[in-house]
Amino acid sequence: MKTKFQIKDFSFYFNEEKVLKNINFEIEANSILGIIGPAGSGKTTFLRSLNRMNDLESGYRIEGNILLDGIDIYKPEYDVVELRKKVGMVFAMPVPLPMSIYENVVYGPRLSGVQDKKRLDELVEKSLSSAYLWEEVKDRLHTSGMRLSGGQQQRLCLARVLAMEPEAILLDEPSSGLDPISTAKIEDALTVLKKSYTIILVTNNTKQAARVADNTAFFLMGELIELGTTSQIFTSPVKTQTDDYITGRFG
């Protein structure tokens, strides 16, 4: 198994409050890691540390390292823009940019300098198909992305990330606002996509982690309590907190 991310004694402080506490683990390439845990457990902060989206906030400080393919992404000379091209992100709320479906998908590739119309068209079809959205929108690619339904918008956001041809995809509760059918489509897409991408899925829905994740990590109060294969975590968790959480005794 190839390792994609190595998290080494990583701590995150926000206004001197320790939000993530000495996290240590490795994330396998070409697999889906589910991250579960109650609200405020640091799941999202951790996810946003992997592509340095936390940089946009002020008042934070980190300790330790995160390595992507063996290279520390927090070293001063590391190019954040390149990092975000390699590590794409889908947010909890679908946010299509106020432009057409087509323009939304080619936003990333255009930034990287892809201008060839044919190449862009290919990327649009390929990404929208992988996000299970192509059939629904192929006849109206040039209408506004904001006119799609919530579930379609979220798949558009996924397609937009895929079009950048990243190496890893971070998903922050991607189906929290979606109906079961849209959720199922996104989950189907993810299980296919893991063959080519490393996927990290933060979810409040433990069943979703059980359905799609290969490995599952349980976060609580900023600590990584337990990490294991999904079947092990859900059938024979080692820690009592994990057991309590997945059986619904708290959180």
Binding site: L56, K85, F91, M93, V95, L97, P98, G108, L111
Partner: peptide, 26 residues
């Protein structure tokens, strides 16, 4: 909206690209 900036940055845009393509048009 702040979310437009987040999305733009997450798609690998620099500050200037975000200003040019998202902030100023809106």
């Amino acid at each position: 909206p702040k979310s437009y900036r987040e999305v733009s940055f997450s798609l690998g845009a620099s500050s200037w690209q975000t200003v040019k393509k998202v902030i100023l048009p809106n």
